[in-house]
Computed example of a mutant assay.
Amino acid sequence: MTLEQEAKGLATGELLQKRGVKSDAADDGGSTPLLKAAAADDLKLARPPTSFHANPNQQNKEGLTATALTDQGPMRPLLENAASRKESFRKDPSLAALKLPFSSHGSQGKSLAPDTLPGNEEQSRQNLLDAIGRNDLELLRETLLSHNEAAQKSLSNLEMEGGIRPLMTVRSAEAAKILLEHGAQPNLVNTDGATALHYAVTSEDPIPIVAVMLAAGADPHVGDAGGETPLNWVKIVFIEFREAAVGEKLLKLLVQAGADINSADKFGDGLLHVAAANNNAPLATAALFLGADPARVNFSGDTALAIARRHGSHSVIPVLE
């Protein structure tokens, strides 16, 4: 993906491939990540948001839904199934409603060896997911404490489809603490190379969750399959969620923990390059304040200012000049 493509479709290129966090967030035209995936007839991009209850019937400003944008190809049954599961989720707003399949293999050799859980193994797994989805701390503790120490550790690092781990789905710092206290490993990766710290920066309550994970040894230097560290993922907070104040605090936390403010993706694009391409002055300002180098070039030889000028990013140009 080129930087120009990223600027036009960050919601699809980033949010869909990362996590179903705020999966129904819409751009200025009312298009959600799922709507964009349907318009592109891209099943790979459509699967993550549907897995996390994106609404296939949400309309953009033209009144079109993801379902309306598809023909009778393979996208259609995926959206119909998503609509059915969306209704179930309204009745049971928990991760247990996802009925995620569990992986029997390790993640790139980094998974724990599975331990046998006493009692009803499937029930323990569903209780764990239900507790995390509801942020039911009492149930979470009870579920873990009903097993021996080895089984607690195994359950806390349960590998689900795509290499997703319980710690990657927590909704509060308290839930993260409980999992970590019972053996959750913060640096395990999913199949895209992302850790729980990557997921934490785009969670519902990111600042305390990130702080807890960093204190527990989460590594801010780990890059995902696209070369992006958790610090790079903070761009989602600025651009997709439009929460600049939260994004600034997250960047400070990560930099204080040793993250490189000039960290770049596999194209050599750092936060300043992304801010320039998306005309996001708050992101550019925050990155510069923390020491980002405006003279740094990406692998195409472009500085952030060159990109801002090419894209007509009038809010960012004076910040970089």
Rank of each mutant, 00 (worst) to 15 (best):
A66V: 01
S103N: 10
D130V: 01
K110M: 12
E62I: 06
L43Q: 09
A82P: 13
S94W: 00
A150Y: 00
S172L: 01
A54W: 03
L69I: 03
R90N: 14
Q58D: 13
T169N: 06
A68D: 15
L112D: 04
S146G: 15
E122G: 10
N148S: 08
N81L: 15
S111T: 00
A96H: 00
E121T: 08
L112Q: 01
L43R: 08
A151Y: 01
E121Q: 12
L139R: 11
A82T: 09
G109M: 04
T65D: 12
G133L: 00
Q126C: 05
D130C: 06
Q58P: 09
G162W: 15
R141T: 11
E122R: 07
K99F: 15
F52D: 12
L140A: 04
R125E: 10
S146Q: 14
L78R: 12
A68C: 11
E142C: 08
A131F: 11
G63W: 08
L64I: 10
L45D: 03
Q126Y: 06
L137N: 04
Q108H: 13
L79F: 05
E138R: 08
E122L: 05
S103K: 07
T116L: 12
S172K: 05
Q126V: 06
E87I: 14
L128R: 06
S103R: 05
